[in-house]
Design a protein around this nucleic acid. Structure first.
Length: 292
DNA sequence: CTGCAGGCCGGCG
DNA sequence: CGCCGGCCTGCA
């Protein structure tokens, strides 16, 4: 399979780069806060993940954070983008926690969270799969798709599977999808794949739109509602104002901020209170609530 | 064995 | 319009 990748004019080479440890970067917070599904903890405490451009391992060593892996583009460039390293989280934390003891607590707990810049296509499919589902099964389902339809990459004697491209996933029949454990979401993924391929849904263009109109467009896709759309926008399109409201966030927002069963009302409140950083605030709240 | 999990859709009042 | 049952599947 490495040969196949080479034929497409890509080379996967072993690379690494490191940076000084900072407080706004903790492996556990980043990978366990619920934003990603394909990062696994290794025995040595590091995490390995399959991302669009390859396989990456991140390890914390003393005062260093070490990135290594095989990527099709420069590893440092890839990681800077993926891990949102150009964003100053300390500044954002201050802004969203002014006069807010609850938010201060949530931030203290998830201090090392960073919002990852993941692949829009992968997020579209992953979050369609997330509906009325649980994390272990979501991860397993995505892994099934990758093993069955994605390219493989070898690193350090292990085989990893890339998330399938739209062209690769198009080969999946409804029956294939059912076998991959998608359940009732099979038809959504099947149709979304075709909408991307025929241009009905242009994720690249969509990412350039303002938050509200991008969300509206995403919600045209069957299987994509307000919550799923916000996840896609937040985790892959840099829309930090997107505030996904799921059952956990609903609970904590009702407890702390606004007592309403109405999702629109909650979104409105979050927009007013946290503004363009609502999505980042959401991650601190979500992680804090779910783990405590 | 019911109930339910990081929602969404469609039908009904 | 807002509300509510059903939906794949697996695990408590």
């Amino acid at each position: 399979m490495a040969i196949e990748l080479k034929e497409k004019n890509k080379s996967y080479n072993n690379k690494f780069f490191e940076m000084n440890a900072i407080s706004d970067f903790e492996l556990r917070d980043i990978f366990e806060c619920g934003q990603c599904f394909r990062w696994n903890k290794e025995e040595d405490g590091s995490y390995t993940g399959v991302i669009k451009s390859g396989v990456v391992n991140v390890k914390k060593e003393d005062e260093k954070i070490v990135f290594s892996g095989q990527t099709s583009e420069d590893l440092e460039k890839v990681c800077k983008k993926y891990f949102d390293l150009d964003r100053n989280y300390s500044e954002i934390k201050e802004i969203i926690s002014i006069d807010d003891e609850n938010m201060k607590k949530a931030i203290k707990y998830g201090n090392g969270i960073r919002i990852l810049n993941q692949d829009p296509w992968e997020m579209l499919i992953s979050y369609i799969i997330s509906a009325a589902n649980n994390i272990p099964r979501i991860s397993k389902t995505i892994e099934n798709l990758a093993r069955k339809f994605g390219k493989s990459v070898n690193m350090n004697g292990n085989t990893y599977y890339m998330f399938p491209t739209p062209e690769e996933l198009e080969k999946a029949t409804m029956e294939d999808l059912r076998e991959c454990n998608l359940g009732f979401r099979d038809k959504y993924v099947y149709n979304a794949t075709r909408m991307v391929l025929d241009g009905t849904l242009n994720l690249e263009e969509l990412g350039q739109l303002q938050y509200e109109s991008a969300k509206k467009q995403l919600m045209q896709v069957p299987g994509v509602g307000a919550k799923v759309a916000d996840c896609i926008l937040l985790f892959s399109m840099g829309k930090s104002e997107a505030f996904p409201v799921d059952t956990w966030i609903k609970k904590i927002m009702n407890e702390l901020y606004v007592d309403s069963a109405n999702v629109n009302r909650i979104n409105q409140y979050a927009a007013e209170r946290f503004g363009k950083y609502a999505g980042i605030a959401q991650q601190y709240l979500f992680y804090y609530k779910r783990e405590n």
